[in-house]
Amino acid sequence: MNAAVQFVHEQLTAKKEFPKFKAGDNVSVNYKIIEGGKERIQSFRGDVLKIQGTGATATFTVRKISDGVGVERVFPFFSPNIDSVILNKVGKVRRAKLFYLRERSGKSARIKEKRF
């Protein structure tokens, strides 16, 4: 990475405590939403499809099935609106990007859990 970009990223990215997760893991993202001037926290639980980007611009995509419809949300890692991320399950996958899940539904869209 360019030295200037690296320096700026170091300055911009405030230290954030996240559990270490990767594609295939099941996470709950607690994010702040502003409703009528009031702030509250909403949770989005699903499987991580991908982690993308580096430094201050890195994002991760979470997919869940809501009322039979697949919903994907992209969260920037360093967004001030992300309150916390909870790691629910560690998935056993062979890929870094799980786009194949989009074509699957039901039983075949499950991700095996990694047991320790």
């Binding site: 911009l12 967004s79 001030p80």
Partner: peptide, 19 residues
Amino acid sequence: MTSIFSSDGRQTACTIIEA
């Protein structure tokens, strides 16, 4: 290029210039 967050969570794309 990079991006910066405002306090209300809006992300702005921006360019770094060594001036």
